[in-house]
């Protein structure tokens, strides 16, 4: 039996399948917190790209609670946790080739980061 049949296509297209979940979880970070992305190197699925590992960023927005793809992809449950928009300066990521005023924002889960000090 196919997962998706013709009659469900319009319903799927219209409603989608949000990864946001309505469960209460304590946020480990607040907007304005400085964080360091953990330097871990899983061989399994992750949404933590190598280029941010070990880097210092700043929490700009709390998107709310989302299921964690790292766990879901391997049948380990939804593991809901807060997802944040985190800002990194381009020079923090790429060094002197980048311009100091440029930046990158990426969405990272609670598990990926540790609270950091910032001058």
């Amino acid at each position: 039996m196919p997962v998706l049949t013709e009659e469900f296509v319009p319903i799927l297209v219209k409603t989608g399948a949000s990864a946001r979940v309505d469960v209460a979880r304590t946020a480990r970070f607040r907007v304005g917190d400085w964080v360091r992305v953990k330097n871990i190197n899983p061989t399994t699925h992750t949404r933590m790209p190598r280029y941010v590992r070990g880097k210092l960023g700043c929490i700009k927005r709390d998107h709310g609670v989302f299921i964690t793809p790292d766990a879901v992809a391997h049948g380990l449950g939804e593991h809901p946790q807060h997802l944040y928009s985190v800002s990194f300066s381009a020079t923090e990521l790429w060094g002197d080739v980048a311009l100091a005023q440029d930046s990158l924002r990426i969405d990272l889960w609670d598990d990926y980061m540790e609270l950091a000090e910032h001058e």
């Binding site: 990864a19 946001r20 949404r47 790209p49 998107h63 997802l83 005023q101 930046s103 924002r105 969405d107």
Partner: peptide, 15 residues
């Protein structure tokens, strides 16, 4: 202009 901030958004999560 160099004075303008370029802000790259990596949308590899759920937004």
């Amino acid at each position: 202009a160099p004075s303008k901030e370029v802000r790259v958004w990596d949308s590899n999560a759920e937004l």
